[in-house]
C-alpha cells in the first residue's frame, strides 16, 4: 500500500527497535543471572512512564459514531475517571486521541491538525472496525479505510461499536504499554513523517496544512 517502504525502524534509547515485542525465546523464559538494578536512565524513564500512564487526557473530539459510547464511559455507569482518565478540552492539554470510528477525508484533515498540536508523548486509540479496514463503509467514497496509514495507532478496540467495557480494556492495555515503554506511535510518526505525509496527501486533495504543525 505504501508509497515507499517505511524507513529503517528507529531504535529506542535502550537499543530496542521501536514497536518490537519481546518473544518467548529460551533467554526470556529462563533467568540468565541475577536481576540487574535499573540504570539511572531506565529508572527515570520508568517513573516518567508510570506518571504518564496513570493520568491520561482524552481529547474531546468525537469523530464518528463510536463517540456515543464515550458518554456512558465518562459517566456514572462505567466511570473512566477512576482509572485517572479524564477529558482534555483542547489538543494542547490532551495526551490521547480517540478516533471513534470512521473518518471522512474532511475530518482526517482536522484530526491530523489536532494530532500534531498535541504535545509529545501522545497516543492514538482507534475504535471500531471502520478504523481497521473500513468496516461497513468499505465502498464509501468519502471515508478512509485503514487508519494506520495516516496516523500511528497504538491500540485498536474492535467491534461495531465497541462496548464501554471493551474500551476500558483497551485503555488498560494502553496504560500497560505506556508503562512498559512500548506505546511509541508518536516516535514512529516523527521518524517516518515523510511516509505518513505522502499517504495523507494522497487522500486529502486540497492540502493546505503547514508542513509540520506542532
Amino acid at each position: 500500500m505504501g508509497v515507499e517502504e517505511k524507513g529503517k525502524v528507529p531504535l529506542l534509547p535502550s537499543g530496542v527497535p521501536v514497536g518490537s515485542k519481546p518473544h518467548a525465546t529460551d533467554s526470556t523464559l529462563f533467568a540468565q543471572g541475577r536481576p540487574k538494578p535499573l540504570s539511572l536512565d531506565e529508572s527515570v524513564a520508568f517513573i516518567k512512564n508510570w506518571f504518564r500512564a496513570q493520568s491520561l487526557n482524552v481529547m474531546a473530539y468525537g469523530t464518528g459514531c463510536g463517540s456515543i459510547e464515550l458518554g456512558p464511559l465518562g459517566t456514572s455507569r462505567f466511570d473512566m475517571e477512576r482509572f485517572g482518565i479524564t477529558g482534555g478540552p483542547t489538543p494542547r492539554q490532551s495526551s490521547v486521541l480517540i478516533i471513534s470510528g470512521y473518518l471522512s477525508v474532511k475530518t482526517l484533515k482536522r484530526v491530523i491538525r489536532s494530532y500534531e498540536q498535541m504535545p509529545n508523548p501522545r497516543w492514538v486509540v482507534a475504535l471500531g472496525s471502520c478504523t481497521i479496514n473500513g468496516g461497513m463503509y468499505w465502498d464509501s467514497y468519502s471515508t478512509i479505510k485503514i487508519l494506520d496509514q495516516y496516523l500511528p495507532v497504538d491500540v485498536y478496540v474492535n467491534g461495531c461499536m465497541p462496548r464501554p467495557e471493551a474500551l476500558i480494556a483497551g485503555f488498560k492495555d494502553l496504560m500497560d504499554m505506556i508503562k512498559r515503554g512500548e506505546a511509541n506511535g508518536y516516535i514512529e510518526y516523527q521518524n517516518n513523517l515523510d511516509w505518513y505525509r505522502a499517504n495523507q496527501r494522497k487522500v486529502i486533495k486540497d492540502w493546505n496544512l503547514p508542513e509540520y504543525s506542532w
Partner: peptide
Amino acid sequence: FARIQGRVGPPVYQGFIDLGKNFFVRDNI
C-alpha cells in the same frame, strides 16, 4: 463531585499524578 454524580471518582491523590504527568510532557510549545 463524583460521588454526588453517582460515580466512583478518581483516587484522592490524582492531583499529584496529574502534576507529575504534566511535568513529564516532552514538548513545551
